[in-house]
């Protein structure tokens, strides 16, 4: 963030190029693994999840330019807070709903 204008200045396209390359790699591997279908289902799901999480961080870093030095602190706190709440809401909802499912439908 540039202190004088309030508008971030992006001098080079470098982060975007790094970002697109990493994103394409991180996308291609799970797609190819699924296409190939050699791995067992459980392993594949783990791999997909891992690559997705890594790719989210790549996008945050190289496309949204989040880092710990220049991003304003309150933006980082808001992001962390959102992440925590999303975990609580999604995790809690799935826990509740699948608990119900097992008790009522199976």
């Amino acid at each position: 963030m540039d202190a004088s204008s309030g508008i971030p200045i992006e001098r080079t396209a470098r982060p975007y190029l790094i970002g697109i390359v990493l994103a394409l790699i991180l996308t291609a591997i799970p797609f190819w693994l699924v296409y190939d279908g050699a791995l067992p289902r459980e392993t594949l799901l783990m791999v997909i999840a891992t690559f997705a999480v890594v790719q989210i961080f790549v996008h945050l870093r190289f496309f949204l330019h989040i880092d710990f030095s220049t991003t304003p602190r309150e933006n980082l706190i808001a992001l962390a807070f959102a992440a925590v709440l999303i975990c609580i809401m999604v995790g809690g909802s799935l826990w509740i709903m699948f608990d119900l499912y097992h008790r009522m439908m199976v």
């Binding site: 992006e10 001098r11 697109i20």
Partner: peptide
């Protein structure tokens, strides 16, 4: 993904 990159290029051109 490509559209995100091209938008990035627009941001660089803007700067």
């Amino acid at each position: 993904l490509l559209s995100s990159t091209t938008f990035g290029f627009a941001a660089v051109a803007l700067s």
